[in-house]
């Protein structure tokens, strides 16, 4: 199916929980409401007409410009995006799924935004979500083992956040 057909298929089934789409870009994407992610992902994986059995990439992007001088030209509202690149072996088609999240849960800095884990749908999401949690600070609810994967277990903060500040010292090692 083409991305437009996939979008139509999803709209027919999930209605307004499919919150956005962009088809005239390099990798066409469909935006899903965070509450519907688990259902949409399960449908994409198991529906025989779609059969997206491979999660090629799962990552997040922090849209934020901490420097107030550059904020005017930044062009995006501050938010987090979780991006899922999907591929189907039976049908050989691609789609990109996006979920927009607030940078902090309830706008309380330090409270990680929450999103349902898709590790029950694609096994590789387990490690990718651990990485996204580690580096971007997204709390994947329902994840079997949400621990840091690349940084040390006692590391503070989430380094790929744009407003992350490198620690002054770590176990006696000078940082900045």
């Amino acid at each position: 199916m083409t991305p437009a057909e996939i979008h139509q298929h999803l709209i027919a089934r999930f209605g307004d929980r499919i919150t956005g789409v962009k088809l005239d870009v390099l990798d066409p994407w469909v935006e899903v409401a965070p509450v519907a992610l688990l259902e949409v992902a399960g449908h994409l994986r198991h529906d025989p007409a779609l059969a997206f059995d491979l999660l090629t990439n799962l990552t997040g992007v922090d849209y934020c410009e901490p420097d107030p001088k550059k904020a005017a030209k930044f062009g995006h509202e501050p938010h987090l995006e979780v991006v899922y690149h999907l591929f189907s072996f039976p049908h050989r088609h691609h789609v990109v799924l996006k979920v927009k999240l607030p940078r902090w849960h309830d706008d309380q800095p330090g409270q990680l935004p929450r999103l349902d884990s898709v590790s029950g749908i694609w096994a590789i999401a387990d490690w990718h979500e651990r990485e996204a949690y580690d580096l971007l600070g997204i709390d994947f609810t329902g994840h079997p083992n949400l621990r840091r994967i690349l940084c040390a277990e006692d590391w503070v903060g989430h380094p790929l956040r744009k407003d992350y500040e490198f620690p002054l010292e770590y176990h006696g090692i000078r940082g900045r």
């Binding site: 090629t56 990439n57 990552t59 992007v61 062009g75 991006v83 690149h85 790929l160």
Partner: peptide, 16 residues
């Protein structure tokens, strides 16, 4: 895979 997000600057917003 490489995932690049550009944002009108010479450095990408995200290089994954």
């Amino acid at each position: 895979g490489f995932y690049i997000v550009g944002n009108e600057t010479n450095a990408p917003l995200r290089a994954r």
